[in-house]
Design a protein around this nucleic acid. Structure first.
Lengths: 202, 202
DNA sequence: AACTCAACCGGACCGCGGTCCGTTTATTCC
DNA sequence: GGAATAAACGGACCGCGGTCCGGTTGAGTT
């Protein structure tokens, strides 16, 4: 089961030359070190290159953009998160009923934002890449499946997009920090939204 | 009534020296010219400065950031939009019932995105400024008021945030262009979402 | 072991948004 | 009109993400 989620989330890097693989590891290590010691904002591509003892071009060769590097840093936790809601115990996992799972899914996301918020936001990056990350596609699919399982009818793909919009990392962090709305309140808002959507007869 | 919306949306720039006001106009003109001739992406701050025959520092003195310059460009249409849903004819204006107005509001936003999408997205900018624009606050307030008028109960501020999230410019444009979901379908999705939220008994 | 070549490497380079600061200018007060 | 001063000006400057390309190197082939 680790394999199926791995396929969804992390491109396994088919065949990489020895030095290339070594440098990928060096770069990820260096990036982690910088995150830990100086925070996400300090993780500039130049800094990573310097810290890894590698040319800047190499960093961009291994990771197309800063956002993708951040996504790679998060890969482990995203994978874990995905395992939780695909195969884990209730309320996230498959043994709970769909609506419960959907609510738990949003709550878990918001909790994750509370702890890894800046990193997640950095991984979202700007404009185009923002909405095309594999993890996002997985979330969208998950929501669609749960809605269908709950017997919700309508344009489920679009409805799922609209629900997912409420969980956007930058948005949630802004509401929490700038608007001073607690994470608990946002989580309750998610639950409320889901219940309304699911209980409605349109 | 123009005054009240003007107060909401456009800071009237209390007292500005003659040369400052002149340069503000020059800069806005130059920016419009660039948008028209070469598209939004061509509106770099250097290009605007050059086109306006003004130093780069001056551009940043009049407009704090690129995003704010874009917002100023949109000020006229945002103002118009706001007038429409505050004082205009139904279904946007106050003579229609709240839910009708709310649906029309989202549809109008999506229509606006179809025509002025890139400009609106550029005005949203990155990270912090994105969610703190005056126009956004106005939209949020409007949604809250309509929900309350419709008799919807619950945490209306948060619920409004969650609804508003579905109308995010970058998000809508991405779904339209990358996911190939037509604007009509997105508008229908908005209507569906609003009806579900409003009709639900939680 | 020598050969080949695609893959990889490094760092100079680019354009961008944004800042800084020495110089200029509109306004106000006498 | 002239002096004083706060405001505005302009362009050199910075750090960033991202690109380019000439030199290098690892991995199969004979």
């Amino acid at each position: 089961m680790a394999d199926s989620s791995r396929q969804l989330l992390s491109a396994p890097v088919p065949s990489e030359r020895a030095d290339a693989a070594r440098n990928r590891a060096l770069i990820l290590d260096a990036a982690w070190r910088l995150v830990r010691t100086s925070g996400v904002d300090a993780v500039t591509m130049d800094a990573v290159a310097r810290e890894a003892g590698v040319g800047k071009g190499t960093v961009f060769r291994r990771f197309t953009s800063r956002a993708q590097l951040m996504q790679s840093l998060l890969n482990a936790s995203e994978l874990d998160f995905q395992q939780q809601f695909l195969f884990g115990p209730p309320p996230l996992g498959p043994e709970a009923d769909p609506i419960t799972r959907l609510i738990a899914f949003g709550r878990a996301r918001i909790d994750l934002l509370a702890t890894q918020g800046d990193l997640l936001r950095a991984a979202d990056g700007t404009s185009t890449s923002r909405y095309s990350a594999p993890a996002r596609a997985a979330s969208h699919l998950h929501i669609t499946v749960l809605l269908r399982a709950a017997g919700v009818e309508g344009d489920l793909p679009v409805l799922s997009f609209n629900l997912l919009a409420s969980l956007d990392s930058a948005l949630v962090l802004h509401e929490n920090r700038a608007q001073l709305i607690s994470m608990e309140r946002l989580a309750a808002g998610w639950e409320d939204l889901v219940r309304r959507v699911a209980s409605a007869t349109v």
